[in-house]
Structures are given as structure tokens and as C-alpha cells.
């Protein structure tokens, strides 16, 4: 791509490589620490002896294994639904001539800032009969106003000459969307797909509020309970002196590792889409 690198340019490259490498390392090391601790039984600062007990324990608990399944399920279905709904809406809103567009955008923006809160939302979910159903983990967060607004911006940057010429050839809106806009916005779709997936994977609050049956809990609920139980972090049961179950540091960390890995693995598959240049040349009008 860059054909005649100058001396300065090469110096910049070396420094940049080194710098980013170091930054990457600094960001990755603590995760290594988490992984190491997960193989240790004792609550020391540095892991001492190696053990697989923590992982054996986790996989022996019925709820944990089941919850991974629930999480995978809601992430797959939820991401698909979210991305589809968001992309369709964002695409329509990217037409500058669409009557009412500005009003709808303002309406969307408004919801980013003003939220009704916990109890009214609970009533909506209840009245739609979604309580204790896995739908309550996907539908209440179906479209993120934030992602919608940014995705619309991506769609707007698609060269409109392409769209125009296609239209003149008699192409339907759906053809335009499927054959021109979506392929050109693949990096953005990959990015927002990832955001949605991670968002759904990481959510626990809706599950706590809407799900009663333990067999429908996603993994984050279990993770949170274990991490909170062991750290006495945010939770406040209001009873001092009540004995609570105790987890060692190792189990805590092992749960973090096991519940994080599945979603982390998704990344490299999506990465190639937003790490590469657009496929402008390959699009046929």
C-alpha cells in the first residue's frame, strides 16, 4: 500500500509498533493474572500451586453449565433480531429526503437521555407477558438508540451515486439495501453486531428483574452472584453478620474466565471485517 517509505516514516512505524505492543501487553497482563489465579486454590496475591479443582467445581454445578447455554442462545437470537431491526431502521433514516426523518431521529435521541426507569419498564414487560421468558432478555433492549444513530451515519456515507444509478435501473429498496448498502457497510455491521452480542452476553440486570426460574438464568447472573458473594462488593443484603456461602478467589476467577471466553472467541471472526478496507470494487450496481 505505502510504496516509498521515507526514513522518518520507517522510524514512526517502529516506534508505533513498539508502543502499541507495550500498550497491548499492559492491557492483556491483568487478564493473564486472572487466568493464573483461576488455577490456584489459595487467596494469595500471587498464585501458588496449580490446580484444576476450580474448573472441576464449576462444571459440576448444574446451573452454571445450563446458564452458558442460555447465554449462547439469547446472544445468537438477540443479536440477529437487534441487528436486523436496527439496520432496517437506520437504512430508512439514512434517506435525507424521507418525510418525518428529522422528527424520528429526535424522538430516538430523546430516548437516549430520558428513561422511564425500573418500575414502568417492568410493567411493560409484564403486560406483554414476557416475565420469566427468555424474550425478556432480548426484546427490552432490542434497539440501542446509540447504535442506531451511529449506524445511520455509516449508511449515510455510502456513496449515493451508487444508490441512484441502481434506482434508475429499477432496483427495489430492498435490492439497494441488500446489494449495495449492507455490503458496503460490512465493517460497521460487524462492529455493531459485536457490540450487540457483547451487550446481550454481559447483561444481568434484566435477568434479575424478569427471570424467576434459575434454569433460564444467563451466565452473568451466576457470575455476578459468585463474584459479589466472594468480594462483598456492591451487594447489600441489609443483614450484617449473616453468614453467606464462601467461594475462594480461584473459583471466582475461574468463573470469570469460563464466562468470558465464549464471547471473546467471537471477536477474531468479526475482526477481519472491520480490519480490512471496504470492498468497494467488488460491488456491482
Amino acid at each position: 500500500m505505502h510504496t516509498h517509505p521515507t526514513k522518518l516514516s520507517r522510524l514512526f512505524d517502529s516506534v508505533n509498533h513498539l508502543f502499541l505492543g507495550l500498550v497491548g501487553l499492559a492491557m492483556f497482563l491483568p487478564f493473564v493474572y486472572v487466568v493464573l489465579t483461576s488455577f490456584s486454590t489459595q487467596s494469595t496475591v500471587w498464585p501458588t500451586e496449580f490446580t484444576l479443582d476450580t474448573y472441576k467445581y464449576i462444571f459440576s454445578t448444574a446451573t452454571f453449565v445450563k446458564s452458558i447455554g442460555v447465554s449462547v442462545y439469547i446472544t445468537l437470537i438477540g443479536t440477529t433480531l437487534s441487528l436486523l431491526t436496527t439496520a432496517l431502521m437506520a437504512y430508512s433514516l439514512s434517506y435525507k429526503v424521507l418525510p418525518g426523518r428529522s422528527g424520528i431521529m429526535l424522538m430516538v435521541l430523546f430516548t437516549m437521555l430520558f428513561q422511564g426507569g425500573l418500575i414502568p419498564s417492568y410493567f411493560v414487560v409484564k403486560n406483554l407477558h414476557m416475565l420469566d421468558s427468555t424474550w425478556s432478555l432480548m426484546i427490552p433492549g432490542l434497539v440501542s438508540a446509540f447504535y442506531l444513530i451511529v449506524l445511520r451515519d455509516f449508511f449515510t456515507s455510502v456513496p449515493h451515486e451508487l444508490i441512484e444509478s441502481a434506482k434508475i435501473d429499477g432496483a427495489h429498496e430492498l435490492t439497494v439495501l441488500l446489494r449495495i448498502v449492507l455490503p458496503l457497510s460490512l465493517p460497521a455491521l460487524a462492529a455493531f453486531g459485536l457490540f450487540y452480542a457483547v451487550g446481550i452476553w454481559n447483561q444481568y440486570f434484566n435477568a434479575i428483574m424478569y427471570i424467576n426460574s434459575p434454569e433460564k438464568w444467563p451466565v452473568q447472573v451466576i457470575l455476578r452472584q459468585i463474584v459479589l458473594l466472594a468480594s462483598g462488593g456492591l451487594g447489600d443484603s441489609g443483614n450484617s453478620g449473616e453468614s453467606v456461602a464462601y467461594y475462594g478467589q480461584g473459583v471466582k476467577m475461574a468463573v470469570i474466565v469460563v464466562s468470558t471466553l465464549p464471547i471473546m472467541i467471537v471477536y477474531p471472526f468479526l475482526q477481519k471485517h472491520f480490519a480490512k478496507g471496504a470492498l468497494l470494487g467488488s460491488v456491482k450496481g
Binding site: 425500573l118 418500575i119 417492568y122 409484564k126 434479575i208 434459575p214 458473594l229 456492591l234 447489600d236 443483614n239
Partner: peptide
């Protein structure tokens, strides 16, 4: 239905509000 104590405290007022 067993709910972890910290989550239970968040949920209780909502349950009272909903009458469920």
C-alpha cells in the same frame, strides 16, 4: 423461588409495585 439477597432487595419493591 430463591433470589440472591442483594438482587432480592432490588426486586422486592418492584414486586410490591406490580402486585405480583
Amino acid at each position: 423461588t430463591h433470589i440472591a439477597s442483594s438482587d432480592f432487595c432490588t426486586k422486592l419493591p418492584v414486586m410490591i409495585a406490580s402486585g405480583e
